[in-house]
């Protein structure tokens, strides 16, 4: 590499002197005026979540959906699952298929990554609501269906911003 790199090193630093009375008064004034500034011009990053939903990033490890046609029933996904959330069962004679228990799933995405035929994939949904715990154990039918996004919510895109940190841009306005 052309540029010189001094590399990592330690640097001794020390705290400046204790504050005198005048410094204290100055810092009080500074802190109060910064507070006043933020009061006048708030910089909110609250996402009003159930009403507004962020568009999750590409490759978000959300809920997992099975493509039943691709699946070859190799059981690797069930074996790799660190939380034992995925189990194989006989969908038909000699036809093993995985099902998932979202009570246990930790969304590590190992099953998606180990699948040799790309039969499993993530969808950018992570917040389904279940009415009871039995519903959290998906059968083959629900597992092969992509979960539906709730209606009547504003979708916003999360943008990292130099001024505000995070900015939420409504999707339809783009």
């Amino acid at each position: 590499m052309a540029e010189t790199t001094p590399g990592p090193r330690y640097s001794e630093r020390s705290i400046e002197e204790r504050m005198g009375l005048l410094d204290k008064a100055k810092m009080h004034a500074k802190a109060l005026s910064l507070g006043m500034l933020r009061l006048a011009r708030p910089q909110r990053i609250t996402l009003r979540y159930p009403m507004e939903r962020p568009v999750l990033s590409e490759g978000y490890r959300g809920m997992i959906v099975l493509n039943n046609d691709k699946c070859i029933g190799c059981s690797l996904c069930a074996r790799v699952c660190p939380a034992a959330a995925m189990k194989m069962f006989n969908a038909a004679p000699k036809k093993l298929r995985p099902v998932i228990n979202y009570e246990r799933c930790i969304f590590c995405g190992y099953c998606v990554d180990i699948c040799p035929v790309e039969a499993l994939y993530h969808v950018p949904v992570h917040d389904l609501v279940f009415e009871n715990r039995d519903d959290m154990v998906f059968d083959l039918e629900t597992f092969t269906k992509e979960p539906e996004e709730p209606e009547h919510v504003r979708k916003v895109k999360v943008v990292i911003d130099e001024e505000k940190g995070l900015r939420y841009v409504p999707v339809d306005s783009e």
Partner: peptide
Amino acid sequence: KIAGRVQMRYGPL
């Protein structure tokens, strides 16, 4: 509300 405005949030809403 004042605390919320300063603290990057809304406060009771």
